[in-house]
Structures are given as C-alpha cells and as structure tokens.
C-alpha cells in the first residue's frame, strides 16, 4: 500500500525545514567561501580555486588518517551493532528488571565526552587505574601511552563501552514496539527462537537499526574529544583520527586548507551514509516481498 500523495504535507515539515536550514546554510556558505581563497588578513585575500582541494587530496598524512578512520568506524559498527542487539534481546520484558537495566545502560551516554576521556586516563593507568592494574596483574605489559596497539585497544574499549548502550536502547525500543500478536502466532506455529528473531524481530527492527548504524557511523567518523583527551592522537600518530588531524591542521595552517578538508570530510561521510541507508532500505523491501 502506497503513501498518500499530498503536497500539503509540506506544511507539517516546514518548521523543521526552517529551523535546520537557518542553522545549516550560513556555516556551509562560510566554509565553501574559505575553501577557495587564500586569506592573508581582513580584506586581503585572493581566489585560489581548487588549489586547497588538490593539496589535501595528495596529502599523505591525510590518507593515513583516513584509512585509520575507516578501520576504526568499521570495527565500531561490527562490534557495537551485534552487541547492542544481543543486549536488547537479553533484556527483560517486564518487571523491575526493565527499569534497572534501562537506567544503568544509559549511564555511560550521559557523561560529557571530554570527561569520559579524562576518566579513562586514570582508569587505564597501570599504577592507579582499575583496568590498567588488572591487565598488568594478569601479566600483560599494557601501556597506551607508549604502545600503538595498546592505545588502539584502549580507544576501542572506551568507544564500545560508551556507545553500545545507544544501539541497545534503540534496539530495545524497537523490540518493544512489536505487537504481542506476532509472537503469539509464532508460538502457535512452533517457531524456533532463531526463526522468531530472523523473521519477526529483525525485520521489525529495521527502522531503528538503520538509525543506529547511521548514527554510529557518523559519530564514530567524527569522533574527537574522547581519543584526543585520552591519547592526544598518539603514540606517534597511531590514534590520530580524521577530526584530530583536522584540528591539528587548522591550528598549524590557514583556514583555507582546513575548510577544503572539512568539505572533503563531509562528502565522505555523506557518501557512506547514503550507501548504508540505501543498503538497509533494500534489505527491508527484500524481506517484505
């Protein structure tokens, strides 16, 4: 059954459109403006065309940061989405357990991002932090300030700890929105738990999971405060993700290259979000047929 065709629906969308457009279009104009100019001072600027873009596209360190970023965001999605769905499935459906697990799950999400990094600095210190002491107690040398792999593991752990609850909360709300009748029908048919998951729960969660995947992709691709506070992008450049590099760049150089970089950055996120979105939409229609 198709949707109703009616352009009057625009009136319902108009407040959102105006509110967001005002906030979005002015910054966009500014950035585009900077990205094609070389600015020496107020009123002293020359048009440089695509020079900054060419600079950025051939920048080796940017390529390194980009691959690092893809690896990071890929791992984030591969770990957090399945883990979040598992948690949502394991959560109780009624009783006091619901309230307790919902509130506990939300706790990591509510800490300001810079504070998360700071707390994890102490938490992972080998001498006075719980995690650092525990890992070293097990006999592993673990120090995220000197070993790149340890730094990666720490940042991944922090990221999974921080954001998996978001996926779990979304998935749980999606699960709770499935009418009980579906499960009754499945019970009468004698469906296995796996069949219930595959043919009822998973398709019904498509909407919330689309949001979860897109949100986690975008936000992990833009991640800044937590790894910056925890590792400062090091050791070396091993945890210098794209946004950390962008900030380094904009403080070390002109606004021109940084603006060009911001636009490239945005286009990459746009492209991949679009691909994820299309893929997830099509998975859904395939199920329906």
């Amino acid at each position: 059954m198709g949707k109703w065709e009616d352009n009057k629906a625009w009136f319902l969308v108009l407040p959102v459109f105006l509110l967001v457009a005002i906030s979005a279009i002015i910054p966009l104009m500014t950035v585009v403006n900077y990205s094609v100019q070389d600015i020496f001072g107020p009123g002293d600027r020359i048009f440089v065309g695509t020079e900054w873009f060419e600079d950025m596209l051939s920048n080796r360190r940017l390529h390194d940061a980009l691959w690092r970023q893809f690896l990071f965001s890929g791992l984030v999605l591969l770990i957090e989405i399945p883990l979040g769905v598992l948690i949502a499935l394991a959560m109780p459906k009624r009783g006091w357990g619901v309230s307790v697990s919902l509130v506990l799950l939300a706790l990591p999400l509510l800490i300001p991002w810079n504070v998360i990094g700071t707390i994890w600095i102490i938490f992972t210190r080998p001498d006075i932090g719980l995690l650092g002491v525990a890992i070293n107690g097990l006999g592993f040398e673990f120090d995220h300030t000197s070993a790149p792999l340890d730094a990666w593991i720490t940042v991944m752990l922090m990221e999974v700890w921080h954001w998996t609850p978001l996926v779990a909360l979304l998935a749980y709300a999606g699960l709770r929105a499935i009418p009980e009748a579906y499960f009754q029908a499945a019970r009468i048919d004698g469906a296995s738990p796996w069949a219930v998951f595959r043919y009822i729960q998973l398709p019904k969660m498509r909407g919330v999971l689309t949001i979860a995947v897109l949100l986690r992709f975008m936000d992990s691709f833009l991640i800044y405060a937590e790894p910056f506070v925890l590792t400062g992008g090091g050791p070396g450049n091993s945890t210098t993700f794209l946004s950390i590099y962008l900030v380094k760049l904009s403080t070390a150089m002109d606004v021109g290259p940084a603006a060009a970089f911001s636009i490239i950055y945005f286009l990459i996120i746009l492209l991949f979000s679009w691909l994820f979105y299309q893929a997830l939409q099509n998975v859904g229609t395939g199920d329906r047929q």
């Binding site: 910054p27 800044y224 946004s243 900030v247 911001s262 950055y265 945005f266 996120i269």
Partner: peptide
C-alpha cells in the same frame, strides 16, 4: 536524507559562523 546530513559535518565547522 538532507536532514540527516546536518549531523555529518565536523562540529568545529559551525563554531565561527554560529
């Protein structure tokens, strides 16, 4: 989809214009 693109730009971009 355009709505969601507003979450895709590095936040630092918005500071000065805002």
């Amino acid at each position: 989809f355009w709505l969601l693109t507003n979450r895709m730009a590095p936040p630092a971009v918005f500071l000065l214009p805002f």
